[in-house]
Each structure stands twice: as structure tokens, then as C-alpha cells.
Design a protein around this nucleic acid. Structure first.
Lengths: 226, 226
DNA sequence: AAAAAGATAGTAATCGATTACTATCTTTTG
DNA sequence: CAAAAGATAGTAATCGATTACTATCTTTTT
């Protein structure tokens, strides 16, 4: 069989893509180098021409995840005016990213609970730290302009924000199809927003600026069931 | 070396305990039958006298987890008067359970993302379903008596509740010591409660009955910064 | 003595990694 | 420009280590 010869960099890129794809349907810890190679139509030994070890493959994969996800949420946040709306955009962007790449949460869950401090775990840990920082900062901005209640513990709220995504994604994976995450996303975020937003105003109670932008179909009653 | 001879049932019980202990410091997917046996001071082959397969071991372990956790949260909830306080007790009970058995969340995360529908995964899935049901029911009770806002989507709130625990636990594990979960638990739950509780009353804003019980050290300003 | 529990010593399969070798592409040279 | 020379990419086979699992023998319990 004739194989295409790719440059080292291109081959590494394809390797990362193969792992991300495989993680969408397999337990990441059970992805073998043979399976990766097969998915790339290459022999198993060829992988070690471009990576010194399997750990190095995982490290590059997690770097791809970190760059891709942070990039996605930064762009999502930039398109919104208010901090709280930015957070909603981050949330939706994150959910979209995960739906596009269903293997990502599996890899994150799998990597983060690893006991040894592998390079890949360090990258994943760094991603979570930077993510939490971004969310905390947005919340504090929101607090400053009175969009978020003064008594809010922003660090705790950031933990809740990240957990919200984790829980939404995991329970969607359990239900069989990850796309269910998008269906439930709006309702879950609404509870979160109510937990941090300033009380009193109609805007605050109904969802900030987005209510103005998005709720032409909804009445002031705000009824929603199932 | 003299070995103690135990009954089959006792040996199975010890096996479960060994796995739970090992999962506290190891990646569950990397726990071998040899490691389990070594921790029990027994040879590896002896395990297969009491379990037909490794999968069967994991199934019994997850059943132990399900029974233990549901038991814990049911007892915690029973000791509280109002539904929302019951939920807080459930939350604290869950966190305590996880701190006592740090291997539990690792096993849950590891089992739930498995692609194949192993017996252990089915048990884990069933646990999450029953857990979500309990939380949803409490929320609906709370809504009925006006403790939770009428516009709350209880199913979405239950997803957030479970995600809150997942996120809290995972981020605590990342920080190195799971005990950090207890430190952050109160703050995180406060945001959640604010997201579902009825607005307006001082009690609601400050945390219901628990505020009366627990905040003698806090002033009305409620300032707290990590 | 019979039955159960555990020890000992294996098996077949699979894993990541390495090796010697071949195919292809790129650069240099006449 | 074309052929030689070198560098890079990939193959096929194999290695040692580890895995879940099993067959056989010994010890303890009842």
C-alpha cells in the first residue's frame, strides 16, 4: 500500500487529532499507541519517530486542548458587553467546544485524577487554573459595576461555574448523547446567574441584558417547564 | 508467614475495602488484581476464589459506594426540618463521605466515562440517577412551601447541585488535599442556595435557618475574601 | 474426612518501546 | 538540469514487562 509521507510537524498534528477523535468513543486510558497508529493508517512504531514516549503524545494533546478551549472562551467573552453576559458566552462557548470534541472532557477527567504528576496532567492542571482565574476576574468585574451582588464570594462562585460545566457534561455523557448538554445549558446557567446576580431589578431577575436581546418569545411570566 | 483464613463473605468485604483504599492514592484504572491482593496480604490468584472476574470486583465496589453514599445523605437529610436545609445537609454529608473515602470520586469519574457498559458502570449510573431524583424531589418540596422560588427549574438546579459537588471535589483533589473541599463547601453552597431560594426575606438572603445557627462570628456585612 | 481457603506456578494476550531495514523527499554536486 | 548523497519518514518484527486469569497442590476449618 502506498502511504503518504508527511513532515514531522504535520504528522504530530495528525497524531493529536487522532487521539482527540478516539477519545470521543473510547476510555482515554485504554487508547493504545497501536490504536492511534491504526486510526492514522500508519504502523505503531512510526509514532515513536515523532514522539519520544506515549506521555509526550498526551502532553501535546492536552496542550492542544488548553489552547483551543482558552482561545474559544476568550473569543466568546470578547463579543459581549457586560461581564455577566461574557460569562454566559464563555459557558455556551465551552459547551459548544465540548460538543464538537466529545473526547475532551473524557481526557480532562481521565488526566486530572491521575496520581503521578505526568506532563499531561500538569498541562491540564494549568488549564483549570487559568480557566478559574478568568472566571473569577469576570465575576469581580461584574461585582464592581453592580451586576453581581456585593456579598458574592467570587472564588466560590468560580468553583461552582466550573463544576456546573463538569456536571452538565458528565450527566449528558451518561444519557448517551453529549448534545443534551446544550438543551440543559440555558436552564442550569440561569440558576447560577440568579445565585450571583444583583437582586431587585427586573433586568437582574430576568437575566441581565440578554433578557432584552433574547426574550422576544418569552413573556414576563418567565414560565418554563421540562 | 502465617495467613489468616477468612470466610468467603469476609474476604469479599476486605477486597472491597482494599480497592477503596487503593483508589485513594492510585488511578483506579491502574489498580491491578495483584496490587489488591498485595494490600490484603494474599496472593493474586486467591482473589479469583471469591470473584469470577475483575469486573465482578468493581461491581461489588460500586455497590458498596452506592449504598454507603445514599445511606449517608438520607440520614443527613432526615435530621433537618426544611427541604433546603436538608439539601445543605446532603451536600455536607456528601463532602464528608468523599473526604473519608478519597478514592470514591476517582472511582466514580473513572467508571462513568467508560465506553463499554460494564456492570460497575451500570451501578454508578444508577447511583447518579437516584441521587438526582432525590435532589430534584427536595427542590420541588421546597418550592411547594415557598422556600425555593417558583420560577426555579428544579431539574436544572439538580444538575447544578451535583455538578457543584463534582467541581468542588475535583478542584480540591487538584490542589493536593481533598480536605480543602470542606473549607470551600460553605461558600459554594451559599451561591447555589441563592440561585434557587426565594428572594426578599433576610433569612433567605443570609442563608435560612443555618444562618441563625452558624453565623455568630459573622457580622451583617458578610464580607469574606480568600 | 470433606470442604473451603490460600499458595504456587504457570498461561495467553497485550502493552509501550526498540531495532534493522526500506521508501521517499531534499540538498548538493558535476 | 540530472544524478549522486544525505536526511527524513515509515515498515515489519520483536523485545521485556505486565496483565487478567487458571490449573494444581497445600493448609486450615468444620
Amino acid at each position: 500500500m502506498q502511504t503518504q509521507y508527511l513532515s514531522a510537524g504535520e504528522r504530530r498534528q495528525r497524531t493529536v487529532e487522532a487521539v482527540v477523535t478516539l477519545a470521543g468513543t473510547q476510555n482515554p486510558s485504554e487508547i493504545t499507541t497501536a490504536a492511534i497508529a491504526k486510526h492514522m493508517s500508519v504502523t505503531q512504531g512510526a509514532l515513536f519517530r515523532h514522539f519520544p514516549s506515549k506521555d509526550a503524545i498526551w502532553e501535546m494533546v492536552m496542550e492542544w486542548v488548553a489552547e483551543g478551549l482558552l482561545n474559544r472562551i476568550d473569543r466568546a467573552a470578547a463579543s459581549e458587553a457586560s461581564p455577566l453576559e461574557a460569562l454566559r458566552a464563555v459557558f455556551e462557548g465551552h459547551v459548544s467546544f465540548v460538543i464538537e470534541h466529545p473526547g475532551v472532557p473524557r481526557m480532562m477527567f481521565g488526566e486530572l485524577q491521575r496520581a503521578e504528576a505526568t506532563p499531561a496532567k500538569k498541562v491540564a492542571h494549568g488549564l483549570m487554573r487559568r480557566y478559574a482565574e478568568r472566571v473569577t476576574r469576570r465575576l469581580e468585574e461584574a461585582k464592581k459595576i453592580g451586576e453581581v451582588a456585593a456579598e458574592t464570594d467570587c472564588r466560590a462562585a468560580a468553583i461552582l461555574f466550573i463544576g456546573m460545566i463538569q456536571g452538565l457534561v458528565m450527566q449528558s455523557m451518561l444519557s448517551g448523547h453529549i448534545e443534551a448538554a446544550r438543551t440543559n445549558a440555558a436552564g442550569v446557567f440561569k440558576v447560577f446567574r440568579r445565585g450571583v446576580a444583583t437582586h431587585g431589578g427586573v433586568l437582574a431577575a430576568e437575566g441581565g441584558r440578554s433578557a432584552v436581546r433574547r426574550t422576544t418569545r418569552r413573556t414576563a411570566k418567565g414560565s418554563e417547564k421540562g
